[in-house]
Design a protein around this nucleic acid. Sequence first.
DNA 1: AACCTCATGTAACCAGTTACATGATTCG
DNA 2: CGAATCATGTAACTGGTTACATGAGGTT
Lengths: 189, 189
Amino acid sequence: MNTLSYGLLSLLSHSPLSGYDLMLRIQPFWPAKHSQIYPLLSALEKENQVSFETVSQSDKPDKKVYSITSKGLASLREWLAEPASDPVMRDELMLKAYCVSAVDPVIARPLFQRRLEHYEAKLIRFEEKIASIQRDGGLSDGESPNYHSDRFGAYILLNKAMMSSRTNIEWCRWVLDLIPNTNENSGND
Amino acid sequence: MNTLSYGLLSLLSHSPLSGYDLMLRIQPFWPAKHSQIYPLLSALEKENQVSFETVSQSDKPDKKVYSITSKGLASLREWLAEPASDPVMRDELMLKAYCVSAVDPVIARPLFQRRLEHYEAKLIRFEEKIASIQRDGGLSDGESPNYHSDRFGAYILLNKAMMSSRTNIEWCRWVLDLIPNTNENSGND
DNA sequence: AACCTCATGTAACCAGTTACATGATTCG
DNA sequence: CGAATCATGTAACTGGTTACATGAGGTT
């Protein structure tokens, strides 16, 4: 049982999902391709951590909808009791930032400009999702779902994502202010 | 040439370093073990991207000190001109957070409490390093090194790390306020 | 003597990505 | 009819971790 397997159990603890849906939903928290997820689901099924039923769809191909079993939920609870390992962040931009002075500002600026736009787009999506959770739970702005609500997990995760995006936006703008703007090829957008 | 190889060139663009030192210094930006770094350095040396000289030390074992070559610097500049790929973050705590309602608050709280302490410790180290860069550059509080200064890269990276730590601390405290504190086993610290 | 840090390297394994492969359904 | 999305799977490869291996020098 590796971390991704527990991640799949974590998602399934809220509702049954197909392998394809699991792959899409786990992306923001633990990026993984379908080729990694399908074999793990087979393994989890062999260990009776999850079960599946084939669901026919009229408009789309058939799918295997997985549910967590009581054994899977027990594994999940044991895993939750253990300390979480340290986060791992790998960002090519950080490696580039360290040696950015080796190139002209005209080369350097787009690196941070692109990243700024990336986080601005993400921020909008996160804010929309938080608003939708609050609508669904009948909560006013700033109010949080109860700890025992099944929206609690998604709510705290989305808030982390939103806060991180804002910090990254702030940092990108701060860096862009520090890089000389020689205005080469200005006015071309 | 993979991303880690460029990361090594990035570090070497500031000053010559041993494989061991490279391994220690790249940790905050791109975690890697010595077993991954030594073979890459050999490969970079074969391609004449880096060169090394063996340095004898009286108090410690001999070391191979690597320097970037002009060919290595050219590769680095080409790489800098390409857009940086999206950052990859994998954090077990995020997977646990999503299903945290499956366990008692007494199990849940320490997860976030430990992470809070982790980021508080990191924040102190980052603030110290920023202060030391500012001292070395003869800068007053809030002043930044010039883009063309060789401290610029480290300075903007440390500021990102500091800002992220603060955001994470804020988030952990906010989550801890949302998790009911049943005060089981209280007063034991 | 046992242990820690510094220092370099290889081997075996696990995790993750890219590519290959198939097929249904919908949309333009 | 070609492209896009949904859906599932395997094979080959690359990236990254753990373990094995060695050895100098200093600390307890």
